[in-house]
Nucleic acid binder design. Sequence first.
DNA 1: ATAAAACCTGTAGTTACTACAGGATCAAGT
DNA 2: ACTTGATCCTGTAGTAACTACAGGTTTTAT
Lengths: 135, 135
Amino acid sequence: MTELGNRYSRGQLAKSTGVKGETIRYYENCGLLDAPARSAGGHRIYTKDHLRQLKFIRRCRELGFTISEIDGLLGLADAQEKSCEQVRLTTAAHLTDVRNKIKDLRKMERSLKELIGQCEINSSPDCPIMDVLFS
Amino acid sequence: MTELGNRYSRGQLAKSTGVKGETIRYYENCGLLDAPARSAGGHRIYTKDHLRQLKFIRRCRELGFTISEIDGLLGLADAQEKSCEQVRLTTAAHLTDVRNKIKDLRKMERSLKELIGQCEINSSPDCPIMDVLFS
DNA sequence: ATAAAACCTGTAGTTACTACAGGATCAAGT
DNA sequence: ACTTGATCCTGTAGTAACTACAGGTTTTAT
């Protein structure tokens, strides 16, 4: 089916997706990316399908999905029925995670800002940041 | 100097700082936490100084400082002069990191929200989230 | 004295890659 | 056909900051 002008080396796949060659191999080991055919000499021969799949993986990673979440999503891509709802749930759960992380970081941000603020007021010989932390 | 009623086991130290016993050992291996004296049988005997130091480490970790940043801060705690400025710089640099992370996560949040939004509109048999990601 | 709790060391697992080492193969030019 | 340089192959080890054993010793409480 996929035959004409449809062969990519690992390097070409890397270039067109922005995913490093070594990482592509890693995804294959993980079972995330389908194992491609091999040349007589053992080199991997990828197709347009791999390209599509890898682009999907990269996008999901950029959105902060973990490998196993992506694995789940790829599994759902095949199973039709009910899968849409599952995808939505996975995405929603991930959104919650992201929001919690933001909350934590905001708390850190406030504390760090406060620590630095102490410095501006300061004129004592001791470091006020250390004073607060090392109490 | 530190002698009376001033001996803690690893477990006691763990309980009073909220840092797990195994993690305490890890910090010692890292060189973060000073190696304590040992009993005849080889058990670690901590002092109030260790308690103080470990609390400092825990606070810094909660604020997102890396181990090596904390190592740096602890080094500065001794060296007096100029160290306050260094502490402030380390803290400021860390604050920038935290803010960048927040920015990234916000971008993720927006995208995820958008993806989920697609679902609410949707009535087609295909999953709109997958459609967008798997394009 | 005995038994349970806590401790000891060293090693391996976690996540998502990245970076080698030491070869083999491929593609292009002559 | 041959050579050369780029790319590819495998397997392993390293990264950050822990966590979790296994298999044994010590401490503490009764």
